[in-house]
Design a protein around this nucleic acid. Structure first.
Lengths: 211, 211
DNA sequence: AATTGTGAACCTCTTCACAGCT
DNA sequence: AGCTGTGAAGAGGTTCACAATT
């Protein structure tokens, strides 16, 4: 049985990958899979997969492998696929629009329900069916649409003040895309996605190799 | 003296943050900073900063701190700020456009020089001064514009075939934004940015806390 | 014979703590 | 007195390797 062990963040991120891969196995009418085989499909080690799954229970059968449909059901429960979360996008510029259209979200239990901006020329219009509200309506819409996660896609000079407003509206989970450091209270969880960080690391390697 | 130690990727990513912060200190005419003070400004521990800088040399003066302008010069050299890299964006849809406009790149030594797409209605136009070429011209433009890094912003079903073309054109550094696993030869470096992974981790925590 | 579950080893990166320098 | 540079310890995560199980 799994106990009160700390589960790595990276494990949780991989569970979504597992679920996608399992669903494609189910579509192919494959109902049993070993960790070795599953590792090949996901480009991970067999031990990694066993360890990840074991944080949540003993789903496998020794000498046999894992039952695909049972594992799908278990993962869906673990990941709260029955629950959905409503996400608001702050900033409906090019990055905000890209987020609204980004297919990575659609597959998950994340609903983009509203966008916010200050520019009068876009407030009141929609992107992909997502309505753009004025930022002054933030608190009202957060409550009405039961938004629990905000994705911040504004310019870096406005990011901190926007986050302050979000925190004041009761949002506890933030995803920040602005390439700047944001300060939040301890009870608020913020993740940062700096899309250029990875590129920087790449360019550093290019610089070292004298290209 | 620093030796042949392995330098963490995360250290390299932080060097860019250091450089930005140092430049803002320089603007304020502050020419000396201690690791403790610098740590407060960057939200990092003092030890982290000393360790990071030490990978590259002994820039500090014991009992005094670091000289801001000397450190700026050193970091610019380390990061190859004299060199610039030309980046091509593959896919000029909403995400591609967002990347072209994303301010995170502009500050660094990364030039977005060209975009590529297959849709005739946008090929030939420009976004923010970046010309959109047809993907068939990839090899030609990669050579002419000396593109060494490609950012892949196409739909996940087209990502692998696009990457294959890029590799065939001689690109060795790739940044993939499509939420799908890409396979590349060993001599090609690929980094993945799945913008929804962080959100997934956030939503998992929300699910656990029964919100 | 095949494959899981898992402790131990390992690796990478961060923090601690302090000797040594100015 | 103040601060760096750094070995050692710690934290977090991955891989190894094998006893246990069907």
């Amino acid at each position: 049985m799994s106990s009160i062990k700390k589960i790595p963040n990276s494990t949780i991120a991989r569970l979504y990958l597992y679920l996608r891969e399992l669903n494609s196995l189910a579509q192919m009418k494959i109902d049993r899979v070993s960790s070795t085989d599953f590792g090949k499909r996901t480009n991970l080690s067999d031990a990694q997969i066993r360890k990840d799954l074991n944080y949540f229970g003993n789903f496998g059968v020794t000498g046999v492998g894992y039952n695909v449909s049972e594992l799908i059901a278990a993962l869906e429960k673990i990941l709260g696929k029955d629950k959905t979360f409503n996400v608001g996008v702050i900033g409906a510029g090019s990055l905000g629009s890209a987020l609204i259209r980004y297919r990575g979200f659609k597959k998950r239990n994340l609903n983009l329900v509203a966008a916010f901006d200050v520019r009068e020329e876009i407030v009141g219009s929609s992107i992909n069916g997502v309505f753009i509200y004025h930022i002054d309506q933030l608190e009202e819409i957060v409550k009405r649409e039961m938004i629990t996660i905000a994705a911040v896609a504004v310019n870096e000079d406005k990011a901190q003040s926007v986050v302050d407003k979000l925190v004041a509206s009761g949002i506890k989970c933030l995803l920040n895309f602005a390439p700047v450091l944001i300060v939040v209270p301890d009870d608020v969880k913020i993740s940062n996605v700096d899309m250029s960080v990875e590129l920087e690391v790449l360019s550093y390697f290019l610089a070292q190799n004298g290209q």
